[in-house]
Every structure is written in C-alpha cells, then in structure tokens.
Amino acid sequence: MAVSILKERWTSKLYETTIGTGDKAVKFGGDSTLPYLQFEGEIPNRPAVALEITDVEPTDWPDFLKAHWEGVLADPVAWAKQAAEYGADLIALRLDSAHPDKGNASAEDVAKTAKAVADATDLPLIVIGCGVEEKDGAIFPAVGEALAGKNALIGCATQENYNSIVAAAMVNGHNVIASSPLDINLCKQLNILMTEMNLPAERIVIDPLIGALGYGIEYAYSIMERSRLGALTGDKMLAMPVVCFVGQEAWKAKEAKDVESPEGQTWGEQGTRAILWEVMTSTTLLQAGGSLFVMRHPESLKKFKAHVEEISKSNA
C-alpha cells in the first residue's frame, strides 16, 4: 500500500524582504511552510548569509578568529572588500565605536564610516548599532541619511528606541531589525508598534536574540518555531523573516574560545571546534526557521552554504 504523505494546509506565508539594490540585492523569506518541507509549500528563497565587520578593531574576538582577518581589522572598508571576496551575500557592519565605553563616536563620525563602507562594496548592507539603546536611537537618523537609497537593513530597534530608528528607515528607504528578548508576545508588540508608524511589515526583520549551541539555543528554537507557526496560521505580526546573529553568540562560547584550560585541551583543535560551533548553531537555527545569518568566520560561511545547498534540494 502506498504511503500517503500528510500535508498541512497553511493559510498564510512569511513576508518576502529585499535588502540592497541592483544585481546584488538579496531576497529572503516568503516561505509558505515549515522549514524545508518542500513537499508541503513554497520556499522561494535561500537563506542569506552576511559576514560581520566592525568599525573599530574588535577587542573581544578570539585570536584565532582575528588571525583570519589579519590586516583589515582596523579598516572597515578593506575588511568589507575582503568579506565580499569570501562569498558573503551581505556585509554586516557593526558600529561599535559609538559605544560610550569604546570611544563614544558621534553620529556624524559613524555615518561617515557607514557611507565609506557602502561606497566600497556593491553588496547589500546591514548596519548594526553599538547595542546601547539610547545611543543607537541617536546615531541612526544620521546613518540612515548617509545610506539613503541603499535599501539597507538597520537596527537593532527595541521598544526603547524604535521610534527614531523606524523614522530614519522610512525617510531614507531602509529596512529595520526589530529586537526582542526571546518572547513571542514582546516580539509581536514591537512589530505592531513599528507598523503603526506606517513602516510596511515586509521591511521588518525579526531578531529574537538567539543563543548559541549549549547557551540556550533551545529557547531560540522554540520561539522561532512558534513565530513561524503563528505566521503560517495568519498572524501578520509574526510573519517577518528572522535574522540570527550567530557569530556574536557562537564566538562567545567557551568551546569556541578556550585554548588554555586542561579541559579545553581535551576538546580537540580550537579552530576546528570554533568553526563547528558557529556552523552547528547556524544549521540548527536554519531548521528552526531563520532566514538571514550573520557570521564571523569565512570558513563557517563556506560550510554553512554547503549545508544549505544540500537541504535546499527539493523533497517534494
């Protein structure tokens, strides 16, 4: 007797979001089923992968990771070019220098850097603030203006600072990352607040504040799964694609950083395990429904893309 495959009939699908302009513009989202059930619905776009660069030389990156970017760490323009060569779909520029403890650069200064990076590459741009909500709210009006017309993705907007970031995105034609701490209700609330400012829903990308493998990834997984189920059953305020900041989480993990402790000695070669940590975190969250991945190591990007290649083969 033939096995009949049970298919769920979903009533809705994810918004499709486009970042950048021209040939290199990147499109993601638009799924009308759970991740990679090609037999059940449409998965029109592959996940996009960005490589992360910072506007000042990072101080908390492990040496192994920094070694790979030797020579460009202090120069975001050169760094962006090299990331493009490694095959990134987008460049994710983090404006760390605006952080009050890391130089407290002015809005005008970071806007200049952002503009310089944008001019140096034809890849779409993600621009992330320094993570201090008030400061990020203050720099994005200038950064948004400097990147006007680039259709960039800016953030991360929170309930505290979404007002100015959304306004900057609307005036200058950008998209916004909406960040909320692993809670489906808070996530929805922020999306409602932002769309009520008349930002179109397809210009929002959800950041659920994921954790790395071994550091709360299961919470991220279940929140992402719940938001995907909500989206497919018609909840428009959960139907935005999800970005996963994998690099920043995976490279904080003890397993990725540790080279000295006796325990670490038994875990095998650091480089291999660090890259695997970043890749495993990404592939897990890909399965949970992530659409955009921000990574730090080019080798991780390569391995992840190979995985995407396999998983994207239709099982219909």
Partner: peptide, 15 residues
C-alpha cells in the same frame, strides 16, 4: 504568564 505578557499592551498583543 504567557497570557499576562501578551496583555501588557494597549489593548492587547493580539489586536
């Protein structure tokens, strides 16, 4: 708790 968090909004997260 889940219902509570979704009700911390005017009027509600589920409009």
């Amino acid at each position: 708790l889940d219902e509570f968090v979704s009700a911390l909004f005017l009027p509600h997260t589920d409009l």
